[in-house]
Design a binder for these strands. Structure first.
Length: 278
DNA sequence: ACTACGTCCTGCTTGC
DNA sequence: TGCAAGCAGGACGTAG
């Protein structure tokens, strides 16, 4: 699911449904999503069995569940990962990869069609897993330092969209919200960071934050059943998108037909009139 | 060091 | 109808 609002929706669900519970049994149905647990699937299960989940946290697109052992269960949803809280008697779904049984009527299930995502135990990571510490803060973090991010962007010759997607510059933003932020701030995604005025960079970051807060209020963006909360329900922000996925439709600001372009090997949607390259 | 590209996966949609 | 190419919300390793 991918981007910050969708991941935060999941975090809230975990906070409500699994925090305070103990993992009673672990079953890994496919090894790939556990590949980031370097000491192997057996150790992964051993480190989790009988352990209590004490909180549900997030930075950017990473989730982690602090454990009463001082470790953390870290999760990244990748492109198609889901964390579902489901009644234990519901049969395993097709893409169920990791099953965590709890001392509760519900299981916690990691379901992931494409398996770009994963789950692993971070040694001593309850407070802040090292893998998560390595990325930048996200715009919803109280400690987010906009001035520092503007300065970082100004030092780079990369395109602003590439910088927004770089989780070491600012975390949580993905392809949808990058396009939405750039549309809102009227900035072309290929403009080099070091050639954009401070005020415009600031507008982009503010727009990113605002659009993600708005999406969160609607339960996130879902185009299909792949992007759901822990109870399997979709969010409604798709209907509020101004740019992403709207090729050929009129820009709500100026009426021009929105354009889709390939850059960075991905689709980018923007208004060719409102968002000039120079 | 920084930057850009290919690759990792599966399944759905599109076009010949 | 059948089949192959194209596409998908992410991030990493590698090469320049």
């Amino acid at each position: 699911m991918p981007e910050l609002p969708e991941v935060e929706v999941v975090r809230r669900g975990l906070d409500a449904h699994v925090v305070g519970h103990t993992i009673t049994r672990v079953e890994v149905l496919h090894p790939r999503p556990v590949r980031r647990h370097l000491s192997g699937v057996g150790d992964f299960a051993d480190r989790l069995t009988g352990v209590k989940i004490t909180a549900a946290r997030r930075r950017g697109k990473y989730l982690w569940l602090p454990l009463d052992t001082g470790d953390a269960l870290v999760a990244h949803l990748g492109m198609s990962g889901q964390l579902l809280v489901q009644q234990a008697d519901i049969p395993a779904q097709r893409h169920l990869r990791v099953l965590l049984e709890l001392d509760a009527p519900n299981d916690l299930r990691f379901v992931d069609q494409r398996m770009f995502g994963g789950v692993w135990v971070s040694d001593g990571g309850a407070e802040l897993p090292t893998e998560v510490a390595a990325i930048a803060l996200d715009p919803l973090d109280p400690a987010f330092d906009e001035d520092a991010v503007v300065a970082r962007i100004h030092k780079s010759s990369s395109g602003i969209k590439r910088l927004l997607l770089n989780q070491n510059v600012v975390s949580g933003i993905g392809n949808i919200y990058a396009d939405e932020a750039l549309w809102s701030a009227q900035v072309h995604g290929e403009r080099p960071g070091n050639r954009i005025k401070s005020a415009d960079v600031r507008r982009v970051l503010t727009a990113a934050r605002d659009v993600m807060i708005a999406a969160l209020a609607q339960g996130g963006t879902s185009f299909d059943a792949l992007y759901v909360n822990v109870e399997g329900d979709s969010g409604y922000f798709e209907r509020s998108l101004e740019a992403y996925g709207r090729e050929g439709e009129p820009c709500s600001r100026c009426g021009s037909a929105l354009v889709r372009a390939q850059f960075m090997n991905r689709s980018s949607y923007f208004c060719p009139v409102c968002q000039r390259r120079r």
